[in-house]
Design a protein around this nucleic acid. Structure first.
Lengths: 127, 127
DNA sequence: AACAAAGTACGAAACTCTTCGTTGACATCT
DNA sequence: AGATGTCAACGAAGAGTTTCGTACTTTGTT
C-alpha cells in the first residue's frame, strides 16, 4: 500500500501533469517558474523524489525523460479532504463541507453547482 | 497580520483547547497522551511555540500556566479549507465540496445534513 | 575532434516540525 | 531543613521538505 498525501510542492507538479499530461522536466519547469520562481534542478529533484515515492512514472527511453502522474487526481483529492476532515473537523465530512460553503469564497454559483450535484447524487440513490 | 495555518500537532492541541476551554499543560497532555502517545514536555514546548505565533494566550499568574486558544475554530477551519482548495482544487470551493460529498466517507446522513444547510443558506438569500 | 547546449544525478544546505532530555525553580510534606 | 514531586524553560536532535550548485553524460554543431 502506497503513501498518499503529496506535499505542497509535489501538488504543484502533479497539477501540471494532470492538466498538461505527460511532460518533460523542462515543460513542467516552464509552467511553474513564472508562478513560483522555482529553479530547473529543483523541479528535476522533486520529480525524482516523486518517482521514488511512486507519485509519478517516467519514460526514460529518450534523452529527455518524460514524467506522468501515476496517481489519480480524484484519489489524491479524496485523501487530502479526508485528512483535513480528520485533523480539523473531528472526522466529519459534513462539517467540512458546510464550513466550506459558508466561506466568503463560496459564490452563489458555487452553491448552485453543489445543489445540482446533490440533486444528482440523491437521484442516483433512488434509482 | 497573523499567520494562519496551524500544523498538525498544533491542531491537535487547539482541538483540546476549543472543546475543553482554557487548560493547563497537564490537562492538555492528559487528553493527548492516550490518543497520540505524546510526552508532557512536547505539549509544553508546542504550547510555547504557539504562544509565540499568537495561536494561544496564557495566564501565567499562577504556578501552572493556563493556556487558551486565541484564534476561532471557524476562522482556522476556513483558512485550512481555502488553503486546500487553492493547492488541490485550483481554487474552486465547489470542486472541493463535490469531491468531499462523493467520498465513501460521506454518508447519506452527511448528505442530508448538507442539503438542509443549503436550503437554509438559500432561504436566507431570498429573505 | 573540439565545443557548446541540454540533460540527469548527486550532495548538501536551509528550514520547519516534532520530539524529548535535562536543568533549575518552586512547592509540599514530614 | 531535607526529600519528593511538579512545573517551566531551554537546547538539541532527528525527520521531512524544498532548494539549488556542481559535476558528469549525451547530443548536436562546426
Amino acid at each position: 500500500m502506497q503513501e498518499k498525501r503529496p506535499t505542497e510542492a509535489e501538488m504543484a507538479i502533479l497539477g501540471v501533469l494532470w492538466s498538461h499530461g505527460a511532460s518533460t522536466v523542462r515543460a513542467v519547469h516552464a509552467v511553474l517558474e513564472p508562478e513560483r520562481g522555482i529553479g530547473y534542478t529543483t523541479v528535476l529533484k522533486l520529480l525524482q523524489i516523486m518517482l521514488d515515492k511512486g507519485l509519478v512514472e517516467r519514460d526514460a527511453s529518450k534523452r529527455s525523460h518524460v514524467y506522468a502522474a501515476s496517481v489519480e487526481r480524484a484519489a489524491i483529492q479524496h485523501a487530502l479532504v479526508d485528512d483535513l476532515a480528520d485533523k480539523a473537523f473531528g472526522g466529519s465530512t459534513a462539517s467540512l463541507v458546510m464550513r466550506a460553503l459558508s466561506s466568503e469564497h463560496a459564490s452563489p454559483t458555487d452553491i448552485a453547482e453543489v445543489r445540482a450535484f446533490l440533486d444528482q447524487l440523491e437521484g442516483a440513490d433512488e434509482a
